[in-house]
Simulated assay, not measured.
Amino acid sequence: MLAFQKVDKPTAGKNKIHLDLDASDLDSEVDRLVAAGARLIERRGDESFRWVTFADPQGNEFDVAEHG
């Protein structure tokens, strides 16, 4: 599924498209993405919903969330 959200005030310096992806095993996906060249920016959320923000080698940010 692909969803679009309208942002009223874009943040300067960030990419125009920000992907939010999901994973069944977030910890394994973090390891896989870092090994593939992604830079981990921040782990977020709590025990009810977790996601991690990354940047690709060109600095474009994206998130990966764990689905239940």
Results as ranks from 00 to 15, higher is better:
Asp20Phe: 07
Gly13Tyr: 06
Ala55Asp: 09
Asp8Gln: 15
Gly37Met: 08
Phe54Ala: 11
Lys9Ser: 10
Ala23Leu: 03
Ile41Trp: 04
Gly59Arg: 14
Leu26Asn: 01
Ser28Val: 09
Gly37Leu: 06
Ile17Arg: 11
Val30Leu: 04
Phe49Gln: 03
Asp63Trp: 01
Ala36Thr: 06
Phe62Ile: 13
Asp25Leu: 13
Asp8Thr: 15
Asp22Asn: 14
His67Ala: 11
Phe54Asp: 09
Arg43Asp: 07
Leu33Tyr: 07
Ile17Thr: 07
Ala38Trp: 07
Glu47His: 15
Phe54Glu: 08
Ala36Tyr: 07
Leu40Gly: 00
His18Glu: 06
Arg43Met: 10
Ala12Met: 13
Ala23Gln: 03
His67Cys: 10
Phe62Glu: 09
Ala23Lys: 03
Phe62Asp: 08
Pro10Arg: 09
Ala12Asn: 13
Glu47Leu: 12
Asn15Asp: 09
Lys14Pro: 05
Phe49Lys: 01
Asn15Arg: 13
Leu40Pro: 01
Leu19Gln: 09
Asn15Ala: 10
Ala23Trp: 00
Phe54Leu: 11
Val64Arg: 00
Lys9Cys: 07
Val30Glu: 05
Ala65Cys: 05
Asp46Phe: 12
Glu61Tyr: 11
Val30Gln: 04
Arg32Leu: 02
Ala65Leu: 03
Asp25Trp: 05
Ala38Gln: 07
Glu29Tyr: 04
Pro10Asn: 06
Val52Met: 06
Gly45Asp: 01
Asp25Glu: 12
Gln58Ile: 05
Ser28Arg: 15
Gln58Cys: 07
Asp56Arg: 15
Ser48Glu: 07
Val52Ala: 08
Leu21His: 11
Asp20Met: 11
Pro57Ala: 05
Gly13Asp: 08
Phe54Trp: 10
Leu40Gln: 01
Glu29Cys: 10
Val7Met: 12
Ala36Arg: 13
Lys14Phe: 07
Phe49Met: 02
Arg44Glu: 00
Arg50Gly: 01
Ala12Ser: 14
Phe54Ser: 11
Arg44His: 03
Arg43Leu: 12
Ser28Asp: 12
Gly45Tyr: 04
Thr11Cys: 06
Val7Ser: 11
Asp22Lys: 14
Arg43Lys: 13
Ser24Pro: 02
Gly13Lys: 13
Leu19Met: 11
Arg44Asn: 02
Gly59Ala: 12
